Computed example of a mutant assay.
Amino acid sequence: MPITNYNVKASRYQEDRFLPRGMKEMTVAKKDYSALANLLVSDINGPEVEAFKNKNRDVKLTMDADLQTSIQQSIASDTSLYDNRVSVVIMESNTGDVLTSAQYPLPPVHNWDQLTMPLADQNKLATWLTTTDLGFTYASQPGSTAKVLTAMSAFNKLGIAASAIQYHVSTQERIRTKGIEPDENRDDHHGARHCQIKQRIFY
């Protein structure tokens, strides 16, 4: 069923009757039962419920089980990721079919309290906790992966001649020069050059 989450702030929250009231941030889930409304008001032994039970509800997944398992085991065994939360999504470019959606750490399916823990409480934990598929429930900035898109756009429009185009980027135009990524600290303005190509193509 469709579920919509809302981050709300209670102004007079009281955990129990012995504690004072105060402010508390929480996540409230709204579940849409409209698809089941007719069944809920009908006879449990009636024809509507019986027809629903006999309905073909087969689901065909596009997931590649071998690829999913391989990537899941790979990120789970990488000790450098133990203090991180990781998501890997692989899609078929021409159809949009999802082939893999792996993540670390996996949801605690055997711990109901953790599995149903609100996001605000998850953020207070000392370690990462995932309760949903990160690849489909969290919006993440693409970061430097967008450089591949802008570079390909340049070659699509200009052909091989795009590789010879260079733009001078002054020191004042550079951003994030103190980051940990190597391309942010070099003097060749590699990242900024892609931004200039993007402006020429799309604007």
Rank of each mutant, 00 (worst) to 15 (best):
residue 1 M to Y: 09
residue 1 M to F: 10
residue 2 P to A: 15
residue 3 I to V: 12
residue 3 I to P: 00
residue 3 I to C: 02
residue 6 Y to G: 09
residue 7 N to R: 14
residue 7 N to W: 03
residue 8 V to Y: 07
residue 10 A to V: 03
residue 25 E to V: 10
residue 31 K to V: 13
residue 31 K to H: 09
residue 33 Y to Q: 07
residue 34 S to I: 02
residue 37 A to P: 00
residue 42 S to E: 09
residue 43 D to P: 05
residue 44 I to N: 11
residue 46 G to T: 04
residue 47 P to A: 15
residue 49 V to C: 12
residue 49 V to N: 13
residue 50 E to A: 12
residue 51 A to V: 12
residue 55 K to N: 08
residue 56 N to P: 00
residue 57 R to W: 02
residue 58 D to E: 11
residue 59 V to Q: 09
residue 61 L to C: 02
residue 63 M to G: 00
residue 64 D to Y: 05
residue 70 S to K: 15
residue 70 S to N: 10
residue 70 S to T: 11
residue 72 Q to D: 06
residue 75 I to F: 01
residue 76 A to T: 06
residue 77 S to E: 15
residue 81 L to T: 06
residue 81 L to A: 07
residue 81 L to Q: 08
residue 85 R to N: 03
residue 87 S to Y: 01
residue 87 S to R: 04
residue 89 V to H: 02
residue 89 V to E: 01
residue 90 I to S: 05
residue 93 S to R: 15
residue 94 N to F: 01
residue 97 D to M: 08
residue 100 T to W: 00
residue 100 T to M: 07
residue 102 A to G: 01
residue 103 Q to C: 05
residue 106 L to N: 11
residue 107 P to K: 01
residue 107 P to W: 01
residue 112 W to P: 01
residue 113 D to Y: 09
residue 117 M to K: 05
residue 117 M to V: 02
residue 118 P to K: 05
residue 118 P to Y: 04
residue 120 A to G: 00
residue 122 Q to E: 04
residue 125 L to S: 06
residue 125 L to V: 05
residue 126 A to S: 15
residue 127 T to A: 15
residue 130 T to S: 07
residue 131 T to M: 02
residue 133 D to S: 12
residue 133 D to L: 07
residue 134 L to I: 07
residue 134 L to S: 04
residue 136 F to D: 11
residue 136 F to G: 12
residue 137 T to H: 10
residue 145 T to F: 05
residue 146 A to Q: 13
residue 146 A to S: 14
residue 148 V to Q: 10
residue 151 A to M: 13
residue 156 N to F: 13
residue 157 K to R: 14
residue 160 I to W: 08
residue 160 I to F: 10
residue 161 A to Q: 11
residue 163 S to N: 13
residue 165 I to Q: 10
residue 165 I to N: 07
residue 166 Q to T: 14
residue 170 S to T: 14
residue 171 T to W: 05
residue 171 T to L: 08
residue 171 T to V: 05
residue 171 T to N: 10
residue 172 Q to E: 14
residue 172 Q to F: 04
residue 172 Q to C: 07
residue 176 R to P: 00
residue 176 R to H: 13
residue 180 I to H: 11
residue 183 D to H: 15
residue 190 H to S: 14
residue 195 C to I: 08
residue 198 K to A: 12
residue 198 K to I: 02
residue 200 R to A: 12
residue 201 I to W: 04
